[in-house]
């Protein structure tokens, strides 16, 4: 499991985990994120059950287990949070922030010790160490109850499946050419995102944020000017195409 520091300012940092060369064949490659501030840390979309051991091993290289106080699951998919039953054994005192809509479903992954903190539809802000994190609504992108995470101090938006691309596990981390990158995103967004209305609403709100890095759950990350180029491209892209 490769780890890349995306941002570091004192004890406030963002680490991305992914591009695992030992990943089991046939499962989609995912990006996991750790945000640390002071004595607290949150894991964003910690991944599937197959990924638990390499993920925990990689995370421990940066923070001890007792400092991982929060987990976040943007939605209910198995590549997002099917490892919950094992995190439940490793981090018995942690809190899981996830959409209220999915609570009774996500609990099926096994959760006896971790506390489920339901995020309301309108989103919420939490304190993590010395920083604040915003859970930004991203409903229907792609899941019917879905959130992204925005860190205003670092200017990083973890954008879940928005901006995701399916490509090789050894692909570079950063988008460096939109013309060559958009074909890798097009079908994913058109098929997985069901609502043009939801898409436009999300774009309108995200344009108001100050984004230095847009970090999706699959594929490469975006920095300016590619963040804006992505938003323009996404705005024009018709989604929900399977019924046509």
């Amino acid at each position: 499991m490769l780890a890349t520091t995306l941002y570091e300012d004192g004890d406030h940092r963002w680490i991305m985990f992914g591009r695992d060369p030992n990943k089991t064949e046939g499962i989609i490659d995912t990006n996991q994120y750790l945000i640390q501030s002071g004595n607290q840390a949150i894991l964003l979309d910690p991944g599937g059950i197959e990924l638990f051991a390499p993920m925990l091993s990689a995370v421990l290289k940066f923070v001890p287990a007792e400092k991982i106080t929060h987990l976040f699951a943007s939605h209910q998919d198995p590549d997002i949070i099917s490892s919950l039953g094992l995190w439940d054994q490793a981090l018995p005192n942690a809190k899981l922030y996830s959409p209220w809509l999915w609570e009774s479903f996500i609990r099926h992954f096994g959760m006896e010790r971790i506390e489920y903190c339901a995020i309301p539809d309108e989103g919420m802000t939490i304190n993590l160490g010395r920083i604040q994190l915003q859970f930004i609504p991203a409903h229907y992108l792609h899941s019917s109850g879905n959130f992204h995470v925005y860190d205003p101090k670092a200017g990083i938006l973890m954008s879940g499946d928005v901006g995701a691309a399916l490509e090789a596990t050894d692909a570079p981390i950063w988008v460096d050419n939109m013309a060559s990158h958009t074909p890798k995103m097009k079908k994913f967004h058109q098929r997985w995102m069901p609502s043009n209305e939801a898409k436009l609403d999300w774009i309108r709100r995200v344009r108001q944020l100050n984004i230095n890095i847009m970090a999706p759950q699959h594929g490469r990350l975006f920095q300016p000017p590619y963040v804006n180029e992505f938003l323009n491209w996404f705005e024009e892209l018709p989604v929900g195409i399977a019924i046509r």
Binding site: F52, A53, S57, L60, V63, A65, Q89, L91
Partner: peptide
């Protein structure tokens, strides 16, 4: 089993996993 596998990988912050 997963914890044992991690113990074989490295020792950084392994103490923090002892209780679990």
């Amino acid at each position: 089993d997963k914890f044992e596998w991690i113990s074989g990988q490295h020792s950084t912050n392994l103490d923090s996993l002892q209780v679990a």
